[in-house]
Design a protein around this nucleic acid. Structure first.
Length: 293
DNA sequence: ACTGTACCCTGTAGGC
DNA sequence: TGCCTACAGGGTACAG
């Protein structure tokens, strides 16, 4: 489901429910997601307060007052629901109702003040890891992770250097979290469209001039930044599973230029091309066959 | 060092 | 109606 914009929106939505509150208890409904859930999960976190909640790449990280870090990844279908007793039964009783199938509720964080934050994940590709301060700072998930694309760490010079000599196509290159953190299948297609770059080109093309005095890397960095910012402003993209923590849907799927639009006419003014679908590394790629070169 | 494939898991859509 | 296949926002472990 969730690429950088969606994870960012979920993270922001969770702030008021988690930050400054204590965990009262943790209830798990199964021993594992993609990986085993943390051992002694409830014992380690009960009574602990969440100091900060932050996003890195597609991870949401809760930092606790004892230094522990709860690292959460949503996989493809993960959702956090902030539950309030908002549905009234025929008997006039208020019950929890989040709109997601309760059979896939896997972890409940019962917070001080009565709020419950529930992790729901149909496909269970998501995971949670509880790391101590020391484990967190050197964990293999984070060493080698590429720069945050919305920070100044991502530069055209950096991208060109990483692309040097790379024969792999641009699509796969940008999907690699070690190159740039947080991009996924949708936003790579959309960023390459904005940059006017053919996803099948070898990544090493980034080092050379693309016209108008800008390198292709310059144009691509702008494309990546603008598509991610626009998507965050629109609350992310809801295809099916993704929801904000309050249940709302994103709207950026309305603004896709190419993703899922194969056969339609290119939206670029003056371009008469058609959007095409192809496959790179077993993932669908969408692009305009005419204006992406 | 790369690249491609299979796989993890469940649900849904489309063809027959 | 059902059965079958392909595909879906994620990432990893292999084999070559």
């Amino acid at each position: 489901m969730p690429e950088l914009p969606e994870v960012e929106i979920v993270c922001r939505g969770l702030q008021p429910a988690l930050v400054g509150r204590k965990v009262e208890r943790i209830v798990t409904h199964r021993p594992d997601l993609r990986f085993p859930l943390p051992e002694r999960f409830d014992m380690r976190l009960a009574g602990r307060m969440v100091r900060r909640l932050e996003r890195r790449a597609k991870y949401i990280i809760a930092r606790f007052d004892n230094g522990d870090a709860l690292v959460m990844h949503l996989g493809m279908t993960g959702r956090f629901n902030i539950e309030k007793k908002n549905r009234r039964t025929a008997l006039g009783e208020y019950v929890y109702d989040t709109g997601s199938d309760p059979r896939h509720d896997h972890v409940e964080l019962h917070m001080s003040g009565g709020t419950r934050v529930v992790y729901n994940d149909v496909r269970r590709f998501g995971f949670m890891l509880l790391l101590s301060d020391n484990e967190f700072s050197c964990h293999s998930l984070f060493v080698g992770l590429g720069p945050e694309p919305l920070s100044s760490d991502l530069t055209a010079a950096y991208l060109s250097r990483r692309a040097e000599g790379k024969k792999a196509n641009l699509k796969s290159f940008l999907m690699d979290q070690r190159v740039v953190a947080g991009l996924g299948n949708i936003y790579v297609s959309e960023a390459l469209f904005r940059a006017g770059l053919d996803p099948s080109r070898p990544a090493k093309c980034l080092a050379s001039k693309g016209g108008r005095g800008l390198t292709r890397s310059d144009v691509l960095v702008s494309g990546i930044r603008s598509v991610l910012s626009d998507a965050i402003d629109a609350g992310g993209s809801t295809l099916r599973d993704y929801r904000h923590a309050d249940g709302a849907e994103g709207a950026f799927q309305e603004s896709f230029a190419v993703y899922g639009r194969d056969g339609e006419q290119c939206v670029r003014t003056g371009c008469k091309g058609l959007v095409r679908r192809t496959v790179h590394a077993n993932r669908a790629t969408f692009y305009c066959g005419t204006c992406q070169k």
